[in-house]
Computed example of a mutant assay.
Amino acid sequence: MDPRSEVLLRQADLFQGPLLIAGAAADGLLGQLPHAHAWTWHAGDQALLEQRFTGRSHYGVEVPQVPFDAAVLFLPKSRDLAAYLLNALASRLGGRELYLVGEKRGGIEGAAKQLQAFGKPRKLDSARHCQLWQVTVDNALEAKPLESLAERFELALEDGPLQVVSLPGVFSHGRLDRGTALLLQHLEQLPVGHVLDFGCGAGVLGATIKRRYPQSNVTLLDVDAFAVAASRLTLAANGLQGEVISGDGIDAAPDNLTVILSNPPFHTGVHTDYQAAENLLRKSSKILQKGGEIRLVANSFLRYQPLLHEALGNCEIRAEADGFRIYRATRG
């Protein structure tokens, strides 16, 4: 069980009534708290929780419309996202209890100061390298619309400026990361067809490809509901059409693809996690059509080239700069 869930169960008497657990881990916590519901923005966690606790887990970027007398937030990595989530939860909890739980190395002590906006926070427990904080919501601020927290910036590309809309919690929020910037310089001579932007984030790659190759169909895929929402906003801001879907990894992608583009993630919260990227590389041959190609950017220290060789029988390094490499491989 997730150590944050274990800390909650040490104080289980506090959580026996209607409870919303925001950012809940995909473990057995709901089985120990029969009146609790989960809210998650991670498609993989949602699938696991729904399988085990049908109807008690809710996926999306807005507070689910279920009754609750108290709420717990599992601290996310992003401080901006934590602020949005705390505000959204507190707006439903005037005079009632809001809890925050997180790992010490995830910055729980600093994040607990964000509770001061709603009342006087106090630490209830410290165990399993985690802390549990509580505040009675004396100041129930009106919930801020998510889109009002968007960061908008413009990219100067060869074929004109691209408007990017990023949301709290999305990778490289409010700016273009160096890896994607390098990949944007190496999108020439892609075959026209069905293109997948895997781990789309705010939709920079997908939107760029749709504008540069308008005859291609573009699908943008991410595990995170906030990234899915941001990608839709980015496409709309540029008057572009594309399919944006949520799903846990490459298994959620359509088949018979012409191109896969990606700056694949290798973190889950504060933890390193190569599974999504490695699954993408290993299964690329199964979802690419004959002659299709995968082109991706990755930190130079990541050993992706042997995985692509194994999956597709070839791999070349197209460019290398600023600690990143561009890889290209084709299905024969």
Rank of each mutant, 00 (worst) to 15 (best):
L132V: 07
L30T: 04
C315E: 09
L98S: 06
N238P: 02
L167D: 00
R175W: 10
L115V: 01
A112L: 12
S246T: 07
L167Q: 03
L33Q: 06
P161G: 11
P145G: 06
L124I: 08
D248V: 00
L93P: 07
V204W: 03
R152Y: 07
L240S: 06
L14M: 12
K283Y: 04
D251A: 09
S246Y: 02
R212S: 14
L187H: 01
V137F: 10
S216I: 11
T180E: 09
A181H: 14
E320Q: 12
E293C: 10
G95L: 00
A82S: 11
I317M: 12
A112P: 14
P145Y: 07
A90W: 09
G247H: 03
W41C: 10
V195N: 01
D2F: 03
A253F: 02
A88R: 10
A70E: 01
D69F: 06
G247R: 01
Q275Y: 15
L93H: 03
V218D: 00
G206P: 04
H35R: 14
Q131F: 11
A156L: 15
L233G: 05
I260W: 02
L221Q: 02
Q16P: 10
H194M: 09
A24S: 02
P265I: 01
F53I: 06
A156C: 13
T208E: 10
E316Q: 12
A253M: 05
G206T: 07
D322T: 13
D27G: 08
K210N: 02
L235D: 01
Q134W: 13
R92Y: 05
L8Q: 03
L93C: 12
G193F: 00
K123L: 14
S148E: 09
T180G: 11
R232P: 02
V164H: 08
L281D: 11
L261I: 04
F198N: 02
P34T: 00
S57Y: 02
P76W: 03
A71W: 03
V165P: 00
I21F: 08
G242M: 02
L280P: 03
E151C: 11
L233A: 13
E97L: 11
D224F: 10
S166F: 03
R295F: 02
Y304I: 14
F118Q: 04
H37C: 14
F53K: 01
L182I: 15
R122M: 11
R282K: 14
Q189C: 13
H271R: 14
P306R: 05
F301N: 15
K120G: 15
T268G: 07
P265M: 00
P254L: 00
D27S: 06
S284N: 10
Q289R: 07
A156P: 15
A82V: 10
S126Q: 09
W41A: 09
D27Q: 07
R232W: 04
G31Y: 13
V270N: 13
R4Q: 03
L81T: 05
F198H: 01
S262T: 13
L141T: 14
R105H: 07
S231K: 01
Y59M: 04
F53E: 04
S285M: 04
P306L: 12
P3Y: 07
N263Y: 02
P161V: 13
G193T: 02
D177S: 01
T40L: 09
V204A: 06
P67A: 10
V66N: 09
H129E: 05
S216V: 08
S172H: 03
R331W: 14
Y327E: 06
D222C: 08
A88Y: 12
L288Y: 03
D45L: 11
V204H: 01
V204Y: 06
L288E: 01
D138P: 13
V195D: 00
R178H: 12
